[in-house]
């Protein structure tokens, strides 16, 4: 109810504190929690990175910078980074090619678009864990349907691909599951971008005699740059963090050929409980992520300045 009141006198604290100080109370709980849960663990990580600390054996010995020296020379970590890079490159190419083609296809049809989009986006509704589980079942070498379907497409009964046990194929099981899971997301963002493009541009270009390839190359593609960039950024972030699918599908195996950086850090720290080295590796990952975030922000800013 509306109610008239006399402006109150300034009392006690109000005289000391800056004007509008209450504003800073609103974000305070969230900020305190985030700071406690992000800065505190990082400080912890930095402290333990100077120790040789095995949780299970109860050893804790100060060793200075040895963990850092080890991390620099760590072949397995380098290999894990390489796994990440390969997954990122292949997945991004596949996701964006398929996502763009499907978005264009959805955009071009007139009948049944809503239903088709809903069916195509089924993977979004399924969590990463469930995706992993589904592909574990589908990719079973002898009983899973995937090998039989590939066989049919090649005119045979069956192909003998050991998706999780073969060192050449294991990484592909990760790529396939992650592309399946993420492609509809890319498609949705691109489709939203396509729908937002002004129809009159196409009409005008058509009157000028432009073919459909020209329409795509000179109108759709330039105007899709924004959505493409957003989708690219978000997918890149997800793929760098990649952990769940590795845990569910291959556990980094066989012979560690599918270990991503996240999985390796988890493995060292929480499987072997080699805590000191684990936190050192996670600090490396942190610096890497920050450098990348910063670079991407710079690119975004420059893009905005140009636009």
């Amino acid at each position: 109810m509306a109610q008239l009141t006399v402006p109150r006198e300034k009392t006690g604290w109000q005289r000391v504190l800056p004007r509008h100080w209450t504003r800073y109370l609103y974000p305070a709980p969230l900020m305190i929690i985030l700071a406690a849960l992000i800065i505190f663990p990082i400080a912890y990580a930095i402290r333990y990175s100077f120790y040789d600390y095995y949780l299970t054996r109860g050893i804790m010995r100060f060793i200075g910078l040895k963990n850092y020296a080890d991390a620099f020379r760590d072949e397995v970590f380098r290999q894990a980074a390489w796994v990440n890079i390969r997954i990122i490159v292949v997945s991004l190419i596949a996701e964006f090619t398929l996502g763009l083609l499907l978005a264009l296809a959805c955009y071009s049809i007139k009948r049944g678009r809503a239903v088709i989009v809903a069916l195509l986006t089924v993977p979004i509704m399924i969590s990463t864990s469930a995706t992993g589980m589904a592909f574990r079942m589908i990719m079973l070498p002898e009983y899973g349907p995937l090998n039989y379907i590939i066989g049919k497409l090649l005119g045979r009964d069956w192909v003998a691909i050991d998706w999780f046990g073969d060192r050449n194929w294991a990484i592909w099981s990760l790529v396939i599951a992650s592309v399946w899971h993420a492609m509809p997301f890319v498609m949705l963002i691109l489709l939203a971008g396509l729908v937002a493009i002004n129809q009159e541009l196409y009409e005008a270009a058509k009157i000028d005699g432009a073919g459909s390839w020209r329409l795509f190359r000179d109108i759709s593609l330039p105007l899709l740059k924004g959505p493409l960039f957003v989708a690219f950024l978000l997918r890149l972030i997800e793929l760098i963090k990649m952990f769940d699918l590795v845990y569910l599908l291959t556990q980094g195996g066989p012979a560690r050929v599918t270990e991503t950086m996240s999985f390796y850090v988890y493995y060292v720290g929480l499987r072997f409980f080699r805590v000191g080295y684990g936190v050192t590796l996670s600090l490396f990952l942190l610096v890497l992520t920050f450098a990348l975030a910063f670079a991407l922000m710079q690119i975004t800013r420059r893009r905005e300045a140009v636009a």
Partner: peptide, 29 residues
């Protein structure tokens, strides 16, 4: 607009952190 662009950047970066970085120290804490 408390904190301006910096607050926004911080929020986004928080989202980018790989969870595995925090999991191990959090486990110890």
């Amino acid at each position: 607009r408390l904190g301006g662009d910096k607050a926004r950047f911080a929020i986004l970066t928080g989202r980018m952190l790989p969870p595995v970085i925090l999991v191990l120290p959090l486990f110890l804490i």
